[in-house]
Every structure is written in C-alpha cells, then in structure tokens.
C-alpha cells in the first residue's frame, strides 16, 4: 500500500553540504557525530533492510520515502534517533519505539557509511602553490570563494568540507563525469545536478546550459555567461540532455600531476562558515 507524499524537508538539503559536517572535525559539533562511532554499520545494514528499506530503499536513496543519504550528518544523530524512535507526525514515518538506542546507532552508522566516498582521499600538494594556481588558471571567473569571484559555477567557500581530494581531482580532470546527485526537487529519487542540456527553439536558435530548474512545462538553463533562460517546453523544437558535458573545462592537460595536487590541497583548505 503505497501512499505517496512530500519529500521530507530535512532530506531535501544539499547532500554535499550535509556530508561536510561529518568530515570537518573542527566545525562539527561533538553531539552531531556522537553515536556514529559506537554504531556497527553492518548490523545497521541488516536492521535497515528489515525496518526501513520498504520505503527508503535498501541503499537509502529513497523509494516511497525520502533519500536518507547525508541526513545524520545534516540533522545530527540525536535528532535521527528521535525520528526513528518516535516517527514524524503527519507523515508515513512510523515510530520504531522498540528499537534500542544501540540499534538506532547501528542504523545511523549504516547511513553515514554512504557519505564516505564523497570525502575520500588524502591531501598531497602544497596549498599555497595551489592558491596561486587557482588565481592564475581563471577559476575565479566562474567560482566564488567568500564573496569574491564569478557566479557561473558552484560556490567553493566550503568545498573542502564537502568533498575529499579524490572527488575534487576527478572533477578537475573530467568535470562532466559523475555529476553529483541530490534528493531535492521531484518525488524522492535523486536528480543530477549541473546536468547540461541543449535546447533548440522553433526558430532554430540554440541554447546550451546547465539545468537549474525544471517542471513538466518549463526548463530553466544557465548558460556559460551565467544568464538564465526559462524555456516553455511545448514550444521547443528539441530538448536533449548532454550527459558527460560541463561548462567547466578539463584541467587534465593544463596542469601537471604535481600542480593538480597543489590545487586540490588549496581547495581542501576551503572550509569556510556556512
């Protein structure tokens, strides 16, 4: 019996931002990570399959219920324990009052295990040299750090708290590959962020840009100059996704491996306040 309803507000937060609080040791409040250390993710996986997966999917990416990746990092373990044990009134989230605190912690440890891949890797380069490279490579034309820079690409003020070295290097080499997914928007499943589209209007005019908003009638694209285009879908001659493409160039050949390490090292220092 599947009654569908809203994506829970707490699950709709930016996933990268949610993961950040877990990986930034200085910034993260102790209470937010307490419990995860004591939880057993393997046991949590089994408990999750038994109790939660009917609605949230076995990998917690959502089904009839919302995507839970990043939720413990975003809300804090205490709040998640509370939700597990008491449910959420007015939603389909029931109370699991007879799960023990230990069992709830196991489930949370399982949920937190999904955050690990985004923050993997070790810092190898020199952040100071990396900062110079950032400035000389034109990054700031598109990206903003603490209020300075362009607004075509995502803000990088907290990127070092949101991503790990491996993920950052991957994106510098092939920006259009493995675009991040988030649970905001429609239904409870994940949608690709920064996905490029090519729209052709009736008069043949082509607009290429990344999707920033979409519904069944309208798609809003942001082009390489940062301009928004709200397009009426029924009036378009064609509209196609361009998977793998990005407005950002690859730095694979522009930077040596050592320079790449330096740039990543600099980006990893960016853990500014929210």
């Amino acid at each position: 019996m599947a009654f569908l309803a809203s994506v829970f507000a707490f699950a709709a937060g930016h996933k990268g931002a949610a993961a950040a609080q877990q990986s930034a040791p200085a910034a993260s409040a102790p209470s937010k990570s307490a419990g995860a250390a004591s939880g057993d993710p393997a046991r949590g996986k089994s408990l999750f399959e038994q109790n939660c997966s009917s609605c949230h999917g076995v990998d917690a990416t959502g089904g009839e219920g919302p995507d839970l990746h990043g939720v413990p990092a975003s809300l804090g373990d205490e709040a998640v324990v509370n939700i597990i044990k008491h449910g959420i009134r007015g939603t389909a989230m029931p109370m699991f009052f007879d799960l023990s605190d230990k069992e709830a912690a196991d489930i949370i440890a399982f949920l937190r295990s999904f955050d690990a891949s985004a923050t993997a890797g070790t810092v190898k380069g020199d952040p100071k040299a990396g900062k110079a490279l950032y400035e000389s490579s034109g990054c700031s034309a598109c990206h903003m750090i603490e209020g300075q820079g362009g607004s075509v690409g995502p803000e990088l003020t907290r990127i070092g708290a949101m991503r790990g070295p491996t993920s950052l290097e991957d994106r510098l080499i092939d920006p259009g590959a493995n675009l991040p997914q988030n649970g905001t928007g429609f239904y409870s499943s994940k949608w690709t962020e920064y996905l490029m589209f090519r729209a052709v209007e009736k008069n043949g005019h082509v607009i290429e840009g990344m999707r920033v908003g979409e519904d069944s009638f309208v798609i809003v694209l942001k082009d390489g100059s940062g301009k928004f285009h709200a397009l009426w879908r029924p009036d378009l001659r064609s509209l196609a996704q361009e998977p793998g493409k990005s407005l950002m160039p690859s730095f694979k050949s522009a930077l040596s491996p050592a320079q790449m390490d330096d740039l990543v090292a600099y980006l990893m220092t960016l853990k500014g306040a929210q």
């Binding site: 939660c52 997966s53 009917s54």
Partner: peptide, 13 residues
C-alpha cells in the same frame, strides 16, 4: 513495517 524486503529506486532521470 512488515515489508519483508525493500526496493532500490531508479534515479530521477
């Protein structure tokens, strides 16, 4: 939930 299993949903696209 007495679901006896679960699902993994496909992505939005």
């Amino acid at each position: 939930i007495v679901g006896g299993g679960g699902i993994r949903a496909l992505a939005g696209e």
